[in-house]
Computed example of a mutant assay.
Amino acid sequence: MRPRDERGVAFPSPLVILSIVAVAMAGLAFVATQDSGAPDDRAQTVAQPSASPTPTATPAPAPPKKVKKPAIKRGEIFVEVYNNSGIAGLAGTTAQRASGAGWNVVGSDNWYGTIPSSTVYFPPRLAAAAKALAKDLGISRLQPAVDPMRFDRLTVILTGDAA
């Protein structure tokens, strides 16, 4: 039988007192480690439900970014137009068409030599501009510029197929 106080209430057993003190100490230790600001090194696990997982939609991949080509500033690119056909005035009329499309035509004349078909000649840095000029004039042949052409501009040489 356990001892009782004057009102008849039984004193708790030493085992109950020890349990209460142990729980209180554990609570204090927990609070003290959480307030220290130190990172928690313990591994944390998350319980996974035992049911089969629900399918989740995966986001669609982003479309590839299109690389914008720099805009061709027609008015800043020099163009020379030459006639290599027997058609009088072909270089002049083509030069007017190029100017009308915004190109900076700096001259037109006759070309002496053998050219297989109407061609836009270009220095390497003006390759994109050459494609645009050829499209504007309806010329399908493009070639790198050669001597005696100038390498700071586009050179158009017209043959009979340009008429």
Rank of each mutant, 00 (worst) to 15 (best):
G75A: 12
S118A: 02
F30L: 15
A43L: 11
S50N: 14
T93H: 03
E76A: 12
L15N: 10
D35M: 10
T33F: 05
M149D: 08
A22Y: 04
S99V: 14
A134W: 08
G138H: 07
L133K: 07
A132S: 13
K65M: 15
A101I: 07
P14E: 09
K66Q: 10
A24C: 14
Q34D: 03
G75F: 08
L90D: 01
G92H: 15
F151T: 07
K135I: 01
S19E: 10
A71N: 01
S117D: 12
A32N: 11
N83M: 09
S52H: 04
I87R: 11
W111D: 03
D109V: 04
S118C: 09
P144T: 12
S117G: 13
P59S: 09
S52M: 04
T94A: 04
P116R: 07
G113F: 00
T58I: 15
Y112R: 13
T119N: 05
V79P: 01
T58P: 02
P14A: 02
S85A: 12
S140D: 14
G37K: 11
Q48P: 05
L18Y: 13
S85E: 03
P53R: 04
A47V: 07
G100H: 07
A134I: 01
Y112Q: 15
L18R: 10
V16D: 05
Q44I: 07
V79N: 00
A128L: 11
V21E: 11
S85V: 06
I115M: 03
A26D: 03
L154P: 01
V81Y: 05
W103G: 00
N104C: 02
P144Y: 11
V81E: 05
S108Y: 14
K135C: 07
K66R: 13
A88C: 06
P70S: 01
N110D: 15
A32H: 08
P55A: 11
P61S: 01
T33W: 07
P124C: 03
L90M: 08
